[in-house]
Every structure is written in C-alpha cells, then in structure tokens.
Design a protein around this nucleic acid. Structure first.
Length: 468
RNA sequence: GGCGGGGUAGCCAAGCGGUAAGGCAGAGGUUUGCAAAACCUCCAUUGGCGGGUUCGACUCCCGCCCCCGCCUCCA
C-alpha cells in the first residue's frame, strides 16, 4: 500500500517515497505563540498528524520538524502590552499549545525549533543572500529579498506578477523596498520593540517571518527534503518566499519535493473571526462540554482539501459516532479475549483485514470521509459473536490500525459517577420497589432522584446512576 | 480584477461515465412495568441553473448564478 497525496506544486496526486530511501523528512509551519491556538489552526496540525501516522503505520520512518514562531510583530507587541519578557510570554503560550496538541492526541514532532533560538542561522543565511545579490539593505538597517533576482518566483502560487488588489494596505515601514513584492529578511530595530532585538552586520533588529522556516529547514532537513506543509493561506506569500530564499541560498533547485496544504475550515458557514464570535479554542469547546476527541473527530471527518463546516451540531454527531465505534470495539475485544488497545508501534505494518477499503481510502490522498464510511459499513456487517476468538482478534487489530491512523482514542465505557450515600440509598430503595413490582413507589423514588439531580437507568440485573 | 476551493437529502459529507457511501437528526419495530440505552429496518427517481457530448452524466465539455479562501507577514 503506497500513500499518494495531492501536491500543490504539480497539482497532481503523487506517490510519496523518501528521497533518501529510508526516512520521510517533512516540515510543517508551526504556530505563532502569542495566544491560544484555535480549531482552525488545529485542523492543519491534526491533518499533518494524521498524514504522519499513515506514513508510519504504513511502514515508513519519518522525521517531523515543526517550528515555533516566537518572535514577530504580534509576539513582541502583546508581550510588551502584558509587561512580560518575550521569553516568558512565548514560553507560556508554547506550553498551552503543547497541552492542546497532547489533548488532541497529536504525536509530538521529532524536532521543534524556535525562531529565537536560531537567529545566527538566519543572519548567516541573509549574508549569503546578500553576497549572491539576492538581498539588499536599506538606510534604516532592514534587509529585503529582491524577488527580481529569482526568475522562478511565483512557481508555487502560479502568479508571476501579483497585482495588488486596489486598496490593499501596504504597511508604512516597508516604503523603502525597491518593489512591492520584495519582502523583509531582517527588520530594523524600532523603539517599540523594546529589548527585543539582535545584532547583525547591517544593524540591530530581528529576522523577518519567512526566513526562520528556511533557516531551520536547512539546519534540520537540508536544502532538499521530502515535504513541506501548512494551511492554504501560507501558499502565498510565505511558502513562495521560502522557496525563493532557500533556492537562492542553497543553489539547489529542489527545496521541498512535495507541498501539502490544508484548506481552512469554516464555522457555521463563515470564516472564523473574533468579531463574529465563532472563533473557538479547545478551552472554549471544553467549557461547552465537548472533548478534544470529539473535536479531533470532526476535524478529520472531512477531506482536507474541502472546506469543512464546523458546527456545534457536528460535535454532537461526533459524540454519537465515537460512542458507536467504542461499542463495536468493545464487542470485538471481548470476543477476541483482549481489552488493552494495541500499542501504536505494534500496529506498524498491520493488515487491515476487513477494513482494507478504509485503509486504501486513507492512503488515497487522505480520504478520511470515504474511510469512515467504509468503517461503519464493515462494523455493521461484522458480527463478533459469530467469529472465532482468533478471527475476532484479527478484525479487532485491523480496526485498531484504522483508528490509530485517525488518531481516534475511543471514549471509555461510561465511568460511574461518585454517588453520594443519600442518593445511593434512594436508588437502593427504588430498586427494591421495582423488584417488588411496586411501580408507583418506584416512579415516586425516580422522581426523588431526579430532584436530587440524578438519573437512574434500569438494566436487567442491575441499575446505573448518572448525574444529569 | 488575478489565482484557487466549493455548490449532493433537515444538518455534516464521500465515491463514481452505468444509474446516489457513511455519520447525525427523523420515522417504524424488537426489548423494557415505565423510561433510557442498545439492536434491526426505513429515509435523495435526485445532485446550483441552462445547454452540449454519450447507448447512458451528479460524474466530461461550454455558458451562467451563488458561496468561500489567498492577493505581503492569518493554519
């Protein structure tokens, strides 16, 4: 089974093979750590995680590099506003980002370099670009990349000469550029930067945003590597600029061999924005009672190149769907005589068995929606009680292969809520009444429990209590 | 305006030149003292609109309408 993925550069789905023959090396643009990441950000990170899982479960080793942007206009501005040092400020948001990633069951990248920790690498790269005639310094000590020096500029986004939309804003501090398309490699120190500046041959300042990725890719993946990824909005200008910088610097006409871009999600049919009040973080959704697992399910249930319309209703649907998957998993596990889910590593190379169609769909440009369809169809057809324990085990493992690829962690069987003694006593009394077929008393006591905030469900042999 | 992604049942969302997966919701049923849960069954003659190609199109071509994204530092 080989994994094929749509490539933004060639506009075709292409099979993925490690350039070096053994390890698939890829880079993902990470978050700017100046506030909580929202579910739109996480659609990208979760899909990148799913992509990596498919590679690994399919038997390919990976090297996953994802940066942390911890110096830019926003991090500097907001840290100043909150009176924190840039380091303390970004450390705080980085920790929260990591916690969210963990909650969403995203595998941590193998390397997670930060921009601030790689200033010298960036300075060195700028020097090389200036030496090659690809960059120029301005009077204020900023340095710009000269796009005219790179004939291939625009190859990824397919626009040779971008025309500015009438009325598009051009920030004031960029007036010294030769042409509008030139972008900052180094931004000269400004008073409002406070203590956040670094020395450089052409003057104090800080690196431009695009440069950090190029510099860190070079450091950890080399001039040519397997794949680069991010949200669609990064195609232009960010990735276009990275290509320009890196190819003019490394000489290689390669950079990323494959480009993987994830489409933005919509919330209630519209773009997320604070003003519309539809910008959700994991914490926002947790406050509404939704789990990270439910969020991940919604994020992965649609194809990554389509616009996913995220709604609270879809989270409710995810809860039902996950419950259905969990019941099926338990039935299979019970028949197979096992209970502990297989370890991720143990599933690498696992046969999908009856879930082969789902596995194939996933490997065909990450068609998660089709894959889920197959999963439910198979689950409906499989009757655990008719299988031998050995067969059930094989089916169960195939099922877990697909679950592991999705990064789905099934909800546990509903844990009993801690029941207060008083409630317990009423429940016992009702159970006794019910057993004695005193329906009136049983119903009265159910009402009493209800008033106490508890719901009692009758089973054949026993009952269960849950908080309303 | 340029470039790109879409318009499929109440909602979400796939495949496919050969006659519409799947999930949620909904309806009916089994079970249950009742209830809940669970399980089973049903649920788009129709795919934004108008043409065309074809034995046959939701799927290909042409035109139009609408939605969404990017267009200089937003995943």
């Amino acid at each position: 089974m080989s994994l094929t993925l749509f490539d933004t550069m060639s506009r075709t789905a292409r099979e993925l093979r490690p350039l070096d023959g053994s390890t698939y090396r890829f880079y993902a643009c990470g978050p700017t750590v100046y506030g909580p990441a929202h579910i739109g950000n996480f659609r990208t990170f979760v899909l990148q995680d799913l992509f990596r899982r498919l590679l690994e479960l399919g038997g390919t080793r990976t090297k996953h590099v994802r940066n942390l942007t911890d110096v830019d206009d926003k991090t500097i501005r907001v840290s100043q506003e909150t009176g924190q040092s840039l380091t303390d400020f970004t450390r705080h948001w980085t920790q929260l980002f990591h916690a969210d990633c963990a909650a969403l069951h995203c595998l941590p990248p193998h390397v997670e370099p930060s921009a601030v920790a790689h200033i010298p690498h960036q300075v060195k790269m700028i020097e090389a670009l200036m030496a090659g005639g690809h960059a120029y310094a301005t009077a204020d000590g900023s340095v710009y990349f000269k796009i005219a020096s790179f004939p291939d500029y625009g190859r990824l986004s397919r626009v040779k000469e971008r025309e500015l939309k009438p009325g598009a804003s051009v920030s004031d501090d960029e007036y010294e550029k030769d042409t509008l398309g030139d972008f900052a490699l180094w931004k000269a120190r400004k008073p409002e930067d406070g203590p956040n500046f670094w020395p450089a041959p052409w003057g104090e300042g800080r690196p431009g945003w695009h440069l950090e990725c190029s510099a860190m890719i070079r450091e950890y993946l080399g001039d040519t590597f397997d794949l680069h990824s991010g949200g669609v909005d990064l195609v232009f200008p960010h990735h276009e600029n990275e290509i320009a910088q890196s190819e003019c610097c490394g000489g290689a006409h390669g950079f990323a061999a494959h480009w993987f871009h994830i489409t933005h999600l919509l919330v209630d049919g519209k773009k997320m924005s604070k003003s519309l009040g539809n910008l959700y973080t994991l914490a926002d959704l947790a406050a509404k009672g939704y789990s990270p697992e439910e969020v991940r399910y919604v994020l992965t249930a649609a194809h990554y190149r389509g616009q996913l319309n995220f709604t609270l209703d879809s989270l409710d649907g995810a809860r039902q769907a996950l419950g259905k998957l969990a019941r099926a998993e338990r039935a299979l596990a019970e028949r197979a005589g096992t209970s502990t889910p297989p370890a991720y590593d143990s599933l690498m190379g696992q046969e999908a068995g009856p879930f082969a169609a789902a596995w194939t769909a996933l490997n065909h440009d990450l068609n998660t929606a089709e894959a889920l369809g197959h999963v439910f169809t198979v689950l409906k057809a499989v009757k655990p009680e008719t299988l031998s324990p050995a067969d059930a085990l094989a089916v169960w493992r195939g099922f877990h292969l697909v679950l592991a690829a999705f990064g789905i962690v099934l909800p546990p069987e509903k844990a009993e809520d801690a029941v207060p003694a008083q409630v317990q006593a009423v429940a016992e009394a009702r159970w006794a009444a019910r057993t004695g077929k005193d329906w009136a008393e049983a119903d009265r006591l159910r009402g009493e429990l209800d008033a106490l905030g508890w719901t009692m469900k009758d089973g054949r042999e026993n009952y269960s209590l849950s908080l309303k």
